Amino acid sequence: MWLFRNILEMTVWKKKMIEVIDIHSHIIPGVDDGSKDMNMTRDMLRLAWKEGIRVIVATPHYKCDGMCKKSFEFREYYEKVCQEARKIHPDFAVFLGNELMDSHSLCEELEAGKALTMAGLNYVLLEFAPSVDACTMKHSLQRMQMHGYWPVIAHAERYECMRSSLELTETLVAMGCYIQVNAGSIMGKNGFRVKGYVKKILSRELVHFLGTDAHDMEKRKPEIQRSAACISDRYGAEYTARIVWENPCQLLARKKI
């Protein structure tokens, strides 16, 4: 009986496979706290494909303090990741970007080519310190917009100022900023308070992107299918398609959402 039930669940699961574009992944080996080597990257790519991920934007961390590798230092690794992805499937694509830590000199670093936008386009994946205050966050995002960038707030659920004020989230979206949340947060991997916040912003359709923020094959795997299915069940297939595929397609086409 147990075996029959599991086979039935697997059959239903396969029928519900949702194709995904993952815009937040630390899959390039040896450049940050993500994948440690190419063997781990291969495993992550295999799992990502199995999870319905068809396109990845690789986003190694970037800080203006000089501690992170510059874009020209890891392009060779990126090309190897692209080759490994194509071995899994010819249509499995990997683009390049950065997860950018907020800094006053960030725009200059982007213009100098040391830091990267997402896939070389207008969008930037921007992260903040967990304790950032609302005023600092808002001013930083406005500064990026004034320089012509379209900011995507990475793992928005991590910031106390956003969790404690739904109004702030609404204000930032009204400003033209975009919200990315991590798949694991939907499943409660980052605590009930974080999960509660994510549920609230999903219910108001304030989320624009769902990402894995994958780092490894243990605690932070490139898993997304269960989270996408959960969103589909609770908030509808149309909205789910928007945040896992249609909005990322707009991003890669250099179009505003």
Rank of each mutant, 00 (worst) to 15 (best):
T171R: 04
E127D: 14
A115W: 05
S164R: 09
L125C: 09
S232I: 05
A174G: 04
M217T: 15
K199C: 09
K138N: 14
H139I: 12
A115C: 05
I153V: 10
G148Q: 09
H208F: 13
T117G: 05
H208M: 12
L168A: 02
A154I: 01
I224G: 08
M144P: 00
L125P: 00
L206H: 07
I186S: 01
E109W: 03
K195F: 01
N122Y: 05
A119E: 03
S227M: 05
C135V: 15
L110Q: 05
C135Y: 13
D133Q: 14
Y178W: 01
I231W: 09
G148I: 11
L110Y: 06
M162N: 12
L125Y: 08
A229D: 06
F192I: 06
K114G: 06
M162V: 11
L125S: 02
R158M: 05
H208W: 10
I224R: 06
A119C: 02
A119H: 00
T136F: 10
A156V: 08
F209N: 00
L166R: 02
D216W: 13
D133P: 09
Y149I: 07
G188A: 03
G191T: 08
R226P: 01
C230I: 05
Y123I: 14
E157Q: 10
C177A: 11
G176S: 03
S227L: 04
V194I: 15
I186T: 01
R158A: 02
T169M: 11
Q145S: 10
N122A: 11
H155S: 04
R193F: 15
N182A: 05
G148E: 10
G113Q: 11
K199G: 08
C135M: 12
Y197D: 01
